[in-house]
Amino acid sequence: MIRKLYPFPTLSVFLLLMWLLLSGFSAGHLVLGMVLATVLPLGTLPFWPNVPRLRNFHKLVLFVLMVHWDIIVANLSVARRILGSPKKLRPAFVEVPLDIKDDFAITLLTSTVSLTPGTVSADISADASRMLVHALHVEDEAVLVEQIKQRYERRLKEIFEC
């Protein structure tokens, strides 16, 4: 019953929090937020691809914190490269084979890659088995691939167990 009413519990909680953040906390908004948190997931149910179940909530929190830290480090290194001579840059397109199969996890991985160290995800192959990454400056492609796989993909795999 409760499963039927709330097909995506995490999404519902998230929507309620968003609503309270947006309109301020009061009893009325709490009720309205709860109604929205129930109605919106039900209304959009047909559009959702298969969303993997979240297995490890505390690992997700750790992952988010780690990504934030990486974003700060990435920005410092990118800033240094932009201010330095563009001639010294060694850009490259790098292909990264993907182990995770789930659409949602791949989306998270590409977003993470785009936000962190000098890399932007440029494309995903049609069968979702490879990802194309453009790097601002890379000495050794194999090291970059290994870093993306070890640091982000492995963790996402643990979080969603897919």
Binding site: P91, F93, V94, S114, V120, S121, A122, L132, H134
Partner: peptide, 27 residues
């Protein structure tokens, strides 16, 4: 990241020039 990804795809579709010393190739 989403808009960056979309713009990168658009650029590859239009086959924009990239610097010659770039290793690897766009798809």
């Amino acid at each position: 990241p989403v808009s960056a990804h979309m713009l990168a795809k658009a650029a590859m579709h239009r086959e924009l020039k990239y610097r010659e010393d770039t290793r690897g190739k766009p798809w």
